[in-house]
Design a protein around this nucleic acid. Sequence first.
DNA 1: ATAGGTTTTGTCAAGCTTTTGTACAT
DNA 2: ATGTACAAAAGCTTGACAAAACCTAT
Lengths: 289, 289, 289
Amino acid sequence: MPAEELLRIGELSKRTGVSAESLRAWERRYRLLRPTRSAGGLRLYSPDDLERVRKMRAHLAAGLAAAEAARLACAPDDEDSRSGSADPVRLRAALAAAVERFDEAAAQALLDRAVAALSIDALLVELVLPYLHELGAGWERGETSVAQEHFASGLIRGRLLGLARGWGLGVGPIALLACLPGEFHDLGLIAFGLALRARGWRIVFLGADTPAETIDTAARMIDPALVVLSGVSPKRLRPVIAQLRPLAARYALAIGGACAESPEAARVAARVLAEDPVSEADRVTSLQS
Amino acid sequence: MPAEELLRIGELSKRTGVSAESLRAWERRYRLLRPTRSAGGLRLYSPDDLERVRKMRAHLAAGLAAAEAARLACAPDDEDSRSGSADPVRLRAALAAAVERFDEAAAQALLDRAVAALSIDALLVELVLPYLHELGAGWERGETSVAQEHFASGLIRGRLLGLARGWGLGVGPIALLACLPGEFHDLGLIAFGLALRARGWRIVFLGADTPAETIDTAARMIDPALVVLSGVSPKRLRPVIAQLRPLAARYALAIGGACAESPEAARVAARVLAEDPVSEADRVTSLQS
Amino acid sequence: MPAEELLRIGELSKRTGVSAESLRAWERRYRLLRPTRSAGGLRLYSPDDLERVRKMRAHLAAGLAAAEAARLACAPDDEDSRSGSADPVRLRAALAAAVERFDEAAAQALLDRAVAALSIDALLVELVLPYLHELGAGWERGETSVAQEHFASGLIRGRLLGLARGWGLGVGPIALLACLPGEFHDLGLIAFGLALRARGWRIVFLGADTPAETIDTAARMIDPALVVLSGVSPKRLRPVIAQLRPLAARYALAIGGACAESPEAARVAARVLAEDPVSEADRVTSLQS
DNA sequence: ATAGGTTTTGTCAAGCTTTTGTACAT
DNA sequence: ATGTACAAAAGCTTGACAAAACCTAT
């Protein structure tokens, strides 16, 4: 006897937002659902049924007719089982689709495949960074919801941090990474850390919203060969310029993120990281050695 | 049954911006569209139809007459068959150069590009297999060192096994793959496994130097639709022929690798895989279905 | 007599917020509770009962029907399938079970979880290496078939090589890794390479069955800070001792694998790697810096 | 482009059954 | 404490309906 959660129709309806009548109709007309029955004849739905309803809804939202949507929802996922091709463009589209319907299992499976098939550099340059970019653009156009954006970034942060495990160990030069005060977007910085790690650096990561003094203290303790600060807007940079000067005097200081393009960045930092993380990691590394 | 999105006329109209009436007219007049029909007679359009409508529109916008535009939209296009950047011949040369100097960074970057741009089949047939062949030939001519050959096969094995991740999952027929006893070259077999996988098979891979009894045991447990044994020399095959007979009696047995061309192979195996892995995977699959 | 706290129905009701009537009904209808009785017939509930009631409530709150909620509350937790179980001992057992039945899906999922939850070091020391060891021991005792051993090592090799991708990049000292001529067991060597990589080394990997001259050639080209040779039996080492001397004179030479314990190894190598890969990687690294 | 008929699909209703918390009598 | 009863809530089946979308033919 499986320890699965079996749902009755009301709960399935509540969780999917589809009326009980429709659920029964979809079962009768398209065999979308195959509930077991309780002793008294009530329908008991498995998690697989729940999943199918979610897919059905996603296809309906995409404009498919109900019969078509049901056919696809019932078809075994052959996006991820068949053709092993790891074309990042397709992976990206599939990832976007999975995020669209909050399908974590599918999203993780796609990321699994990407991690297995690509190098760290390619993973970042061809999949993760363009996808995040796209997500941001979609949000600005009002196409993706904030919820989707959070879901996606949580997912990706988890995977990247998994890859980041142990990135402080070893014998390479140390890079100290932090987001500027008030800055909470750390994915780009994590990506840069991974690219550096792949080139032999040791990473100390302070994360989002790090006060200037904290960076200073940490630098004094670990004596990094490079300090990298990241922020999306020059607004983050301006208030701390004065505090950064002594840091810049003692350590190689780099500024990344969108604010790297501002004149302020050029004034205070030894190095401005205006291109993608992987290229910049290459440059920084070749300077180092 | 394809897992394609089939659209009804309203959705196709919405997605292309062409009125339903026009779509029907284009179907009648120019056979631009070949929708299937639902049980009740509604038109169901495939993604290919969608693509043709888009092309038609583009041609119309360019000023062509409708009949001309339709003719062009129906013609198979050969432009997207290959973009120059991932030309396998160049990739192969570049890969050889990278391996020559043990430059893993460059080699991995090249393989990234190849994995991204090519299908599994193309990756195998146009890059990996010819490259390995060339490497072997270079070694026989004394041009490449064994060190480079080892380095390269390690690299490629890692990438192929990455693509192989999850090749045992799914619902297709099962193929059991193993190298003959004493045989340690498994790359060809991995390539064959990937080609089969791209055709929907499930793969169970026993790898190098597998004793005959082992193959037997495994076959009994998983009941494969096909057993594939690989070896580079008839020397590997001869000592186990007697042991393979009962296996061949019970399962479809195929022999691959250079030893497939020997008379021994023909005597024991139902199927001799003498050509490249991709073609053979095609044949085996068409026999299966 | 157990020193458990036994609760009467009123107290259980107060602690769980479920009415006494419902508790009795749940006992009668779903056998959710198995109270002992006092001399006078009063129900006495154990802490396990309390726990089950809490689970029941949690499932009810999640919207499950009472019958379903009770079924789940009574089912033994298979925490295995839940998130918290990155316990390497259990993972190992589960991995063994998955391999036993050639279930790649389950095995990959387990490895996914392990890779996500453990550091490289822990992955190697607590999961992969003990598992391989166990597998070997089971084989010697005739318990596991060679088929399973092959299947498992193929699987694990794929995963480790996936983690190894890009291990040649960067700025650290270079280690040249190879198996001795005639030696085909490369998993231990790959593990050692990963442990070194986690400590900042760059790895050049020549793999199984590498001729002595090959090692020599490669070393001359890449000028490694360390050369590591691996073999399971002194038989592999003896024939090449003479050829290794000049290599040992020019580079730091280490011998790993079971043959490291032989007197021959001590005679030719600067360093004998007799312990597990991770400890030895630690030592080698501290010597280096 | 319109007209007139068909298909698809979500929703509703009526009458009956199951499930489940609570109340009551012993 | 036990056992039975009860009623509200939730569910089942069958059948039907109507709006939207689609068809063909003129």
